Simulated scan of single mutants.
Amino acid sequence: MMRFVMGRFFHAALVVAALLILVFLIVHLTGDPAALALGTDSTHEEIVAFRHDMGFDRPLWIQFLSFARGVLLHAEFGNSLRYQEPALPIVLERLPATLELTFAAMGVALLIGVPTGLFAAILRGTWRDALLRIIALLGQSAPVFWIGILLIQVFAVQLGWFPSSGRDNGWMSIALPALTLSAYSTASITRLLRASVLDTLTQDFVRTARAKGVSALVVTLRHVLRNSLLPVVTLVAMQFGTLLGGAVITESIFAWPGLGRLVVQAIYNRDIFLIQAAVFTIAVLFVAINFVMDILYMALDPRIRLR
């Protein structure tokens, strides 16, 4: 097991190194970073002075070494151009709100998607199965912004059950954003689990358990569901990245004070160092979540080993 964990950790470290290069290149792929940061209203002298102050006039490889040393040794991305403070602490200040929304959305997706997918497989061929599949298809097809606006219109404006924005009312504030963000993941989990359960039901160990007189409930929960959850674990790991990215739209709709909304504001303000810090933080989180999911995958199926 230790070999498996160390191998996955080594792969994660390689991915983080590649991310460091990509985040650095974000500033340079769009043109002159000094002109990008200052905008079209700045003079040539201001651009030249800013380029010198930020070190953008040095060779590219020297800039990368300085950037990598600052990130890896001191966790520094530079000062935010808008806030005039170190960029990473600003990102970390907004991160808890985004993680709260992401985990809430994933919790809703699992709470709804797992039993729905299981019931759809058990009720295969019935009208209830068809109805659940249609709802899941709609959940994957509907745009996030449309779902968010619809929920605000119905539950916040017309019924007045939940607030339409902000984070000041506890679970009531997170209810609509979490439902909005979880729609696609819920539908994906439902459809994948249904297909996985149908495949597991045809396996020999299931028929053997039934032939030995094991009750249908025990067979379903202990044998079928556990083995069917393996592909769902992989999907959940990928969906975390989707949720973190989708939070940009959801947080903007509901004025949720998280990292996604901060990224949108940083793009509008051309705050390149804040964008770098935010993108790298989200990417590292995604790598860390996938690392944890790999370990969980092995725990669910001990046959998995790193060769």
Results as ranks from 00 to 15, higher is better:
residue 161 W to T: 04
residue 162 F to M: 13
residue 163 P to C: 07
residue 163 P to L: 08
residue 164 S to P: 07
residue 164 S to V: 08
residue 165 S to T: 10
residue 166 G to H: 02
residue 168 D to H: 01
residue 168 D to W: 04
residue 169 N to C: 05
residue 170 G to A: 07
residue 170 G to Y: 01
residue 171 W to P: 10
residue 173 S to I: 02
residue 173 S to E: 00
residue 174 I to L: 11
residue 174 I to R: 00
residue 175 A to I: 04
residue 175 A to R: 00
residue 176 L to Q: 09
residue 176 L to P: 08
residue 177 P to T: 04
residue 178 A to C: 07
residue 178 A to T: 03
residue 180 T to K: 15
residue 180 T to L: 01
residue 181 L to P: 08
residue 181 L to N: 08
residue 183 A to F: 02
residue 184 Y to C: 02
residue 184 Y to E: 01
residue 184 Y to L: 06
residue 186 T to N: 02
residue 187 A to F: 11
residue 188 S to K: 03
residue 189 I to D: 03
residue 189 I to H: 05
residue 190 T to G: 00
residue 190 T to L: 01
residue 190 T to M: 03
residue 190 T to A: 00
residue 191 R to I: 00
residue 191 R to E: 01
residue 192 L to Y: 00
residue 193 L to D: 03
residue 194 R to L: 00
residue 195 A to S: 15
residue 195 A to H: 06
residue 196 S to D: 09
residue 196 S to H: 10
residue 196 S to N: 12
residue 197 V to F: 02
residue 197 V to Q: 13
residue 197 V to L: 07
residue 199 D to A: 12
residue 199 D to H: 14
residue 200 T to L: 13
residue 202 T to F: 15
residue 202 T to Y: 14
residue 202 T to H: 15
residue 202 T to G: 12
residue 203 Q to Y: 12
residue 203 Q to V: 10
residue 204 D to W: 13
residue 204 D to G: 11
residue 205 F to A: 15
residue 205 F to I: 13
residue 206 V to K: 02
residue 207 R to S: 13
residue 208 T to S: 13
residue 209 A to S: 14
residue 210 R to W: 01
residue 213 G to Y: 11
residue 213 G to K: 11
residue 213 G to N: 12
residue 214 V to W: 10
residue 214 V to M: 15
residue 214 V to K: 10
residue 215 S to T: 12
residue 217 L to H: 06
residue 217 L to W: 04
residue 218 V to I: 11
residue 218 V to S: 11
residue 222 R to M: 14
residue 222 R to P: 07
residue 223 H to Y: 10
residue 223 H to A: 08
residue 225 L to H: 06
residue 226 R to W: 04
residue 226 R to N: 11
residue 228 S to A: 14
residue 229 L to Q: 05
residue 231 P to D: 02
residue 231 P to N: 08
residue 231 P to Y: 03
residue 231 P to G: 11
residue 232 V to G: 09
residue 232 V to I: 09
residue 233 V to G: 05
residue 236 V to E: 00
residue 237 A to M: 08
residue 238 M to Q: 09
residue 238 M to S: 08
residue 239 Q to D: 04
residue 240 F to A: 04
residue 240 F to W: 07
residue 241 G to F: 00
residue 241 G to T: 12
residue 241 G to R: 07
residue 242 T to A: 06
residue 244 L to Q: 10
residue 244 L to N: 13
residue 245 G to H: 09
residue 247 A to K: 08
residue 247 A to N: 09
residue 248 V to L: 09
residue 248 V to S: 14
residue 249 I to T: 13
residue 250 T to I: 06
residue 250 T to Y: 05
residue 250 T to S: 11
residue 250 T to K: 14
residue 251 E to C: 13
residue 252 S to Q: 12
residue 253 I to F: 03
residue 253 I to R: 15
residue 255 A to C: 13
residue 255 A to M: 12
residue 257 P to V: 05
residue 257 P to S: 11
residue 257 P to H: 08
residue 259 L to C: 08
residue 260 G to K: 02
residue 261 R to E: 02
residue 263 V to T: 10
